[in-house]
Write a protein that binds this DNA or RNA. Sequence first.
DNA 1: ACAAAAGTGTTTTTTATACACCCATGC
DNA 2: GCATGGGTGTATAAAAAACACTTTTGT
Lengths: 247, 247
Amino acid sequence: MAGRTPRKSHLLTKQPLADFKVGVDNVIFSVDTAQNRLLVLLVMRQQEPFLGQWCLPGTLVRQGEALESAAYRILSEKIRVQNLYLEQLYTFGGLGRDPREAPDSYDVRYLSVSYFALVSFAEAELIADGVSGIAWYPLQQVPQLAFDHNQILEYGYRRLRNKLEYSPVAFDVLPEVFTLSDLYQLYTTVLGEGFSDYSNFRSRLLKLGFLSDTGVKVSRGAGRPASLYRFDAEAFAPFKDRPLVFI
Amino acid sequence: MAGRTPRKSHLLTKQPLADFKVGVDNVIFSVDTAQNRLLVLLVMRQQEPFLGQWCLPGTLVRQGEALESAAYRILSEKIRVQNLYLEQLYTFGGLGRDPREAPDSYDVRYLSVSYFALVSFAEAELIADGVSGIAWYPLQQVPQLAFDHNQILEYGYRRLRNKLEYSPVAFDVLPEVFTLSDLYQLYTTVLGEGFSDYSNFRSRLLKLGFLSDTGVKVSRGAGRPASLYRFDAEAFAPFKDRPLVFI
DNA sequence: ACAAAAGTGTTTTTTATACACCCATGC
DNA sequence: GCATGGGTGTATAAAAAACACTTTTGT
């Protein structure tokens, strides 16, 4: 969007500008700690192209709507949730990624700005409008998706793992107070067993000092009751921009 | 770009889709190791808006042109260079970031997909077409730029530092063979003195084993001659996706 | 009593950090 | 011979990794 300096030469090769519709596609993850599964939200396409195939929830950007607003809009059309984390992922704008673009036409192009979101599984309530299929899919069982959405999903999964290691996204998606096992389970579900020993994970995190013990104990079935902890955003501040805090 | 499921309710609030022109703006860095300066390429705007103000080199995407192709196109219109690293940075699509969008109009929107590039300073040859100003600016001396380009630059600088720590971008921009001091200097220039001791930097890198000593020595003025090393991409492969390899 | 989950501590290994020092060259 | 930059080694501190053990609950 900036100073495109006209070139004197190659005037003949200068194509006219492309016209775009801009889509927003969301990779929405949640972690089902009860069943140790990482889930991604998929919806069934209700129209051509790819009618009847699963895809990431997306929308086209409307007049007067910011990109991020569009991302929040689809999200809120599909699920009701209080707490979430959302950030931009990547912009896919290759030729021919959308069959609506005829191969050699100078028609409108379709470009997709993808967003990555993490929501609380417990909280999230899917909005089934009766017509459209919508479902949480375990990451391992995701079928072939419409467009290049498998690729976008792949990209989002990589981002999720990084985010978990470097930043406190987990706390955006855990309840206000939680046990250290809750936190550990979330991490193992996403990162896989063996990313760290529970007891080491525990002591590292406590030593960092941004988890405050509420003193309240909670008992879940058998075993010793666990302390409830709270994430202290202020105490975390010095760790911002520091690499590898959580692992 | 995906299944936008029609909602039964809110039919009245449904705005028409926005039409976009898509711009590509490049944050092009190079490292002047001789003077220990990190440089960014700026061009002077030749037209309104922001006529006569510096900005990042950018262009609008043409018909039949992929986003990345557009990024490469501006780059090659501004500098001649053999080796470079380029990747997508972020997409800025907020309302009102371009004055050409009237505040409340339903006109065409302007969206900017930014790219981040690192080129070799020694190799890079600026293409001055006589009309347009174009210059390498030391990062500390960058003036106020057109549009939101200062913000984009900021973002690009953060990415550069991360890239340097996590990935072998430096070797895309160093000559085929180089001394360890060359490499160290590049790192200190970008990351600042004190990111690591030279001797520790040296031994860590050599222990990793993807730098092979060519045996050839090179003498630069006074001092003991240095060994020339070569980056071994194959030996590096196992370090891909591993965090913090270089620091 | 005993299994299950929470929580503590210790030992070992590895890695980071800070230096001190030797080496080969130009002047 | 001495300043200059290249290169090696070591001593200490800190952190990661592995794992043994104690505590507190439900059944």
